[in-house]
């Protein structure tokens, strides 16, 4: 046991070290791609006077050669500074993202939790009553969940529950009642995917020998499901967490816009469209770090749930 823990720790450490060059490559690629894009941060509806534009470029160091800007960015980043935003001029990028990150994390975490809970429940029910009406209903509902784009679901939810029924707020973040609709809108497509995954894995697990044996020994059916089948079925759901995180990121861009939430998903797109170079870089760095950590966590979770996995 002790030996195993060390193995896992070693493995985690190695993965984290391996993430450093990955991150470096991502930053470099994003930095230069962003700069090749036509247009700059000061190209708006209103063209700026040439002298004014010159002053701005000088203020932001855009008049320096590109490699120098790149070196400066990396240097700043090493010191924990993501630079000034080209658009939101009163704050540094890490300050802005620091305000938004907790919101996005809460939103994503709650949505994931909800999706896992409902998805696993629905999938289990469907698998236990395979080919029954309940099963078909779950499968149909789950499929429906992934066929309707979130930018349709989110405003419809807001319209029904905020405008027509008046039960929940239409926008904002902070109070519990403001969280309900965005979390549901974000979780919905994931519920669908997780329900399908769980159902498939459950069916397989229920057919497996040790579940049959357990049943044959006369253990109560619910015990069997919980102890053996569910445990086996959770694995695919966990392995889906990585892709789910990516999907949540995309979804949060839409949900944050529709419900007007102060999360970082919006800066991602806003930044790219405004050519807010540092803001885009900041979001890319944060998202990449997050995805790397998340994938590592998923792999470690595997070790907990599936003793067969070895780390060497």
């Amino acid at each position: 046991m002790h030996r195993e823990e060390i193995d896992i720790l070693r493995y985690a450490l190695r993965r984290l070290l391996g993430a450093v060059p990955t991150l470096f490559l991502i930053i470099t690629a994003a930095f230069f791609m962003m700069r090749i894009a036509p247009g700059g941060p000061f190209d708006q509806e209103r063209t700026l006077e040439a002298t004014v534009l010159e002053n701005l470029n000088r203020t932001f160091g855009l008049d320096k050669p590109l490699w120098q800007q790149y070196a400066m960015y990396l240097n700043n980043l090493l010191h924990g500074d993501m630079g000034p935003s080209f658009v939101f001029r009163d704050k540094r990028v890490h300050e802005i993202l620091g305000e938004g990150l907790p919101v996005s994390m809460q939103l994503g975490f709650l949505a994931l939790l909800l999706a896992l809970f409902i998805g696993v429940c629905m999938g289990t029910v469907a698998a236990l009553r395979q080919n029954s009406k309940a099963d078909y209903f779950v499968v149909a509902l789950a499929t429906f969940g992934i066929t309707v784009p979130p930018f349709v679901v989110a405003p419809v939810l807001a319209l029904v529950f905020a405008v027509f029924l008046g039960w929940l707020p239409a926008q904002g973040w902070g109070r519990a009642d403001q969280m309900v609709l965005p979390v549901i809108a974000l979780a919905l497509p994931q519920v669908a995917v997780i329900a399908r995954l769980t159902r498939g894995a459950m069916i397989e697990a229920l057919r497996s020998d040790h579940v049959r044996t357990a049943k044959a020994y006369g253990l109560p059916a619910s015990m069997v499901v919980i102890k053996h089948a569910l445990r086996a079925a959770v694995l695919p759901a966990i392995s889906y967490l990585g892709p789910a995180a990516a999907a949540l990121l995309t979804g949060s861009i839409v949900v944050e816009q529709v419900f007007n939430l102060p999360g970082i998903g919006r800066y991602f797109v806003q930044g790219a469209l405004n050519r807010d170079y540092t803001m885009v870089m900041g979001t890319v760095v944060i998202v990449a770090v997050f995805v790397i950590l998340f994938n590592l966590m998923v792999d470690l979770l595997f070790a907990v749930f599936d003793p067969r996995v070895r780390y060497d």
């Binding site: 391996g18 993430a19 990955t22 490559l25 991502i26 690629a29 994003a30 791609m33 962003m34 090749i36 894009a37 036509p38 990516a246 990121l249 995309t250 861009i253 991602f268 797109v269 790219a272 469209l273 885009v280 979001t283 890319v284 998202v287 990449a288 995805v291 790397i292 994938n295």
Partner: peptide
């Protein structure tokens, strides 16, 4: 495969958006 892993941790939506912008 390491390269695939790197690509996988990229926020690809961002790259698609940038590509479309280009």
């Amino acid at each position: 495969m390491r390269f695939v892993d790197i690509m996988d941790s990229l926020p690809f939506v961002f790259f698609v958006i940038l590509l479309v912008v280009f």
